[in-house]
């Protein structure tokens, strides 16, 4: 690389927090001021900062989160006797985001269940049908591309809502870039049809079992998946009052 930092790169130590089993590094940032390739004499140019998403939360999660995870485990264990996945096979980890609240009882606390990609439909089925869970409404799928999350680059995030119990939770499913396949959930939630098509269109995640996985927003013959991080934003420099404003993706970024 051309922008070799004088004095070498300095990594900052990253220790998993209390009770965290896994640690999901999703990005690695270099430097501090966003300047790349210029002679950074501040001494911060060599700073290497890994970015890790919140790790698995320890029990008890608080609020209704424990109950939902327990019931889900029970339902999955029951279904495992007739050939379904067990809880340990299906669920990778459970994350509680408190978002600044003191406890999980606060409105802004959120529950995320990370699910193995081949078992997502089975988990959705359990979440939808059991009377203590009843997440009847799937509010869609959104993709996220983490190019630094090795082996799990593409994430699909499902947003479920329970009208019966007034609850919301999130399922997160990851797939590697070189095998971007996730089991489709359209058999459980028909509403996910267009949402999965959108996620395929923008991220290239292939939802196995989807009835007609075609592009939905981009033209049918479009090449590439525009929302991925390696897909350029595009744009042209614009002249304004004598100065040239570069396109947004080549402007200096500070993060």
């Amino acid at each position: 690389m051309s922008d070799v930092t004088p004095g070498g790169d300095q990594g900052s130590a990253l220790t998993p927090p209390e009770g965290a089993a896994t640690f999901e590094v999703v990005e690695v940032k270099k430097g501090m001021f966003g300047a790349q390739g210029s002679g950074d004499t501040s001494g911060y140019g060599g700073l290497v900062t890994p970015v890790a998403m919140p790790a698995a939360s320890p029990r008890p999660y608080g609020s209704w989160f424990d109950q939902v995870v327990d019931v889900l485990a029970e339902v999955l264990e029951d279904a495992a006797r007739t050939g379904g996945p067990t809880f340990d096979q299906a669920v990778e980890k459970v994350v509680v985001d408190l978002h600044g609240a003191a406890s999980a009882d606060a409105q802004q606390a959120e529950l995320t269940i990370h699910v193995a990609r081949e078992h997502v439909a089975a988990v959705c089925q359990a979440l939808r049908d059991d009377q203590d869970l009843r997440f009847e409404l799937s509010l869609g799928v959104s993709g996220v591309h983490y190019p630094h999350d090795a082996g799990r680059e593409l994430h699909a995030v499902y947003h479920l809502a329970s009208v019966t119990h007034s609850r919301r939770l999130r399922l997160e499913v990851a797939a590697p870039d070189d095998d971007p396949h996730i089991r489709s959930t359209t058999s459980v939630y028909p509403s996910n049809d267009w949402h999965e098509r959108e996620t395929y269109d923008f991220f290239g995640i292939v939802f196995d079992g989807h009835p007609a996985l075609t592009r939905i927003e981009m033209p049918d013959d479009w090449v590439g998946h525009p929302q991925r991080k390696d897909y350029p934003l595009g744009g042209i420099p614009v002249e304004y009052k004598g100065a040239t404003v570069p396109p947004p993706d080549t402007r200096r970024s500070y993060s």
């Binding site: 940032k29 970015v51 509010l139 049809d193 267009w194 959108e198 970024s253 500070y254 993060s255």
Partner: peptide
């Protein structure tokens, strides 16, 4: 990702879903 820009922002628009 801890930065000054959204790493990803997704909108579940009701019209998008309802058109199904």
């Amino acid at each position: 990702d801890g930065g000054t820009r959204p790493y990803r922002a997704h909108f579940r628009d009701p019209s998008f879903n309802n058109l199904q």
